[in-house]
């Protein structure tokens, strides 16, 4: 009988030890998982921090570029207006065309009402698809030089209304560009040769390097009061929200 109780006690003790052992194992296991998870969280946190720091730097650069007037753009409205919008765009970019279509009249009205000062800054983003962005931007600068900002703005609008598709940028010829410049109000003799010869390539290169230096790497890039404006899932939503933000 005493043997039996001894055996029982041993068995109980062994069981208790096994239980304690299992408990230690489980603890170790969870600590390991926790440690690994912590390391992962730290890496993700570090990556997010790097990205955010870089983004802040980029945002500051863009805000600085948008705060002044560019030599490579055309404006509507009064500089004293409560809001300032800068739009970096490429004459070939379809989303720029869509943004133009959705916002042009409203922006013109808001500018006329003194609610916003808008600066359009065209540059060459897409010339790898064809030389249209260079030809069109050069023509824009020719018109700006020869006929002034009002005509240049009208020309800019006409370029977007008659935008070629990205798959066939050559479909709008230099003669077409001259025709549109004249339609916008430029005197043919003032602009025709310079447009046909794409003589302001230098201006385009400078406008482009200014945009790139500001960190613009997509179009349209909209900057509202020094902040990149991206509110909206689609370009149409963005256009709508931009107008709503200004009104």
């Amino acid at each position: 009988m005493s043997d039996k109780s001894k055996a029982n006690a041993r068995a109980e003790k062994a069981a208790a030890e096994r239980a304690a052992q299992a408990k230690r194992e489980a603890r170790r296991r969870w600590l390991t998982i926790g440690g690994v998870a912590l390391a992962m969280a730290l890496i993700i946190g570090g990556a997010i921090t790097i990205s955010l720091l870089q983004k802040n730097k980029n945002d500051d650069k863009l805000a600085a570029a948008a705060s002044g007037r560019s030599d490579y753009g055309v404006t509507i409205g009064e500089e004293s207006a409560p809001h300032k919008v800068v739009i970096y765009e490429d004459f070939l970019c379809p989303y720029c065309g869509e943004l133009e279509k959705q916002t042009r009249e409203d922006l013109a009205q808001l500018a006329a009402d003194g609610k916003v000062f808008v600066e359009y800054r065209p540059f060459d983003l897409l010339s790898q698809l064809g030389d249209y962005p260079i030809r069109a931007t050069s023509a824009f600068s020719v018109v700006l030089d020869a006929s002034g900002p009002a005509v240049a703005k009208k020309f800019h609008d006409l370029l977007y209304e008659n935008q070629p598709s990205e798959s066939d940028p050559g479909s709008v010829t230099n003669d077409d560009l001259v025709e549109r410049a004249v339609e916008a109000g430029a005197k043919e003799s003032d602009v025709a040769d310079a447009i046909r010869n794409v003589s302001n390539k230098d201006w385009v290169a400078k406008a482009t390097s200014e945009a790139k230096a500001a960190g613009v790497n997509g179009t349209p890039t909209i900057i509202l009061d020094g902040k990149v404006f991206t509110d909206g899932r689609t370009i149409d939503e963005q256009a709508e929200n931009l107008i709503a933000a200004l009104d």
Partner: peptide, 20 residues
């Protein structure tokens, strides 16, 4: 992508699936 946050955000946005 870590050092190109703006491009990364633009890439996500281009899918036109998520709110800004």
């Amino acid at each position: 992508k870590i050092t190109e946050p703006d491009a990364s955000i633009a890439a996500v946005r281009a899918y036109q699936l998520l709110p800004s």
